[in-house]
Design a binder for these strands. Structure first.
Lengths: 139, 139
DNA sequence: TAATACTTTTGTAATGATTACAAATCTGTT
DNA sequence: AACAGATTTGTAATCATTACAAAAGTATTA
């Protein structure tokens, strides 16, 4: 996505496209690594020495409220952020403590709607051991 | 579940059934309200003045590791605990800030297994507005 | 029953992610 | 250029959770 397109997307959602917000959103779109606030801060302060942690939190809240990113709470210690909004789940490996995406068959929230809930976000989380860590243990 | 049965269940999982652990597990089994550590503490300290917050955390970790309860991270502010282990999802109402159960059609984790992940826990979370709060707004 | 080793509980103190807040800066409009 | 409103920034506070070590409890052995 070009910087112009990014700016346009933010504007369409009624978000003033400041340099900081564009930087955060662009980082999340180009790094599908589910970074934490701290990771975002360290990555972006390099290009903008006055960049602050508070701005990270302000920005991700604004983006999440607009539905442009997800806030992942699978890790109780730290929030992780994800700008990939396609239907997918998240897997937390208890061994290497990394977050993985996994494909999701389909209609997770369908029963919710039928129960009268108005759904704004939905997430599928799983924990366990990832393939790489399973292989390590077997050695 | 009788106290004897509770004790037996803990023992079967290799957990020493101390009075505190039985109390926590019993509270969770009889209150399907997804309490927080603080709620558990205040409820149980009444019957045992020396009961401590640390014991709440110790105990829920032990129970969760044994697969007897779930630790819910849907609320980023506080962990919630749930001893009902049947397949169901959790809904967080952004309006009244309450947690609801919802029924789940079926095979959430099936695609995960096919990708080689070893699944230990899985949870489906959704947020939005519950039926009661929708009715309130419409008035 | 007493002695011993081991587990669990308890209270206090530390940790650290997140939020509160107000001053400074930026943005868009006249 | 000046103004009002929004955003950013740095610092200080908040508060759930964890670390830790002493005290209490539990089980095992003789």
């Amino acid at each position: 996505m070009t910087p112009q397109k990014l700016t346009e997307t933010l504007r369409q959602k009624g978000i003033c496209p400041t340099a900081q917000r564009v930087a955060v959103y662009e980082y999340l779109l180009t790094h599908r690594t589910h970074p934490t606030a701290d990771t975002l801060y360290h990555a972006l302060v390099k290009d903008n020495p006055s960049f602050s942690r508070t701005t990270v939190y302000n920005t991700v809240h604004v983006l999440a409220k607009a539905g442009l990113i997800r806030v992942l709470t699978i890790d109780a210690d730290e929030q992780h952020f994800d700008a990939f909004m396609g239907e997918h789940g998240h897997f937390w490996c208890a061994c290497c403590e990394k977050l993985f995406d996994f494909s999701l068959s389909a209609d997770t929230a369908s029963s919710l709607v039928s129960d009268g809930f108005l759904v704004e976000t939905s997430d599928v989380y799983a924990t366990g051991v990832c393939p790489a860590c399973q292989a390590k243990v077997k050695k």
